[in-house]
Amino acid sequence: MISLRNVSRTFETPAGRFTALSDVSLDINAGEFVTVVGQSGSGKSTLLGLLAGIDRPTAGEVRVASTDVHTLGERAMSAWRGRAVGIVFQFFQLLPTLTALENVMLPMDFCGTFAARDRRKRAVGLLARVGVADQASKLPHTLSGGQQQRVAIARALANQPPVLLADEPTGNLDSQTSADVLALFDGLVREGQTLVMATHAAGARAYASRTVSLADGRVVRDEVLARA
């Protein structure tokens, strides 16, 4: 499902050149729940950004859901991204002037997936799946952090992407809510979703089937875990 070959990413900063990822090679299969762990600055978010196509590698190849992402132009990248990956951010990133339901409908609107008359129904179903159907007509600022993240997960699933990417999804949540979200992810993976999650959360290990450890932009450990 996901394949990285000798991927590097360097940034030019006022302080000089910074290497966020260095020669990373990695394969992730369909249905895996992979956590990417490491300290701040280890390259976790950069790795997810490359998988999502919101960043480009300086060197190497990135292949996600049968597409060589690193070769796509900006326009093609956007179109691919909407259908191939669903992204969950640490700070939710919901559009503040759209309701929860409308936020979930948005990816379908941009990508033209599903017939227009079916989108609302599908969005309601997704919100129900993540447990916040009763918040459908609310604006994000009226929702709790946990509710917002659930809406964000529903949005990420809107176009039925083969891959779900989550960048520190529990980083802004309390422990109970974090546990709820992780349980939600677990449920999705059990339904066949492929999930790659960058995380500091210790509890994530219990749900993951594999954990990849990064340090200074390199994979230092790739451990298969026994899932419950």
């Binding site: 326009r75 956007s78 991204r81 909407g82 992204i87 990133q93 990816p107 941009f110 949005r155 176009n159």
Partner: peptide
Amino acid sequence: REIGVMKAVGARP
């Protein structure tokens, strides 16, 4: 930032 979010969920430029 909202433009970034829209592009992240599939909006073309």
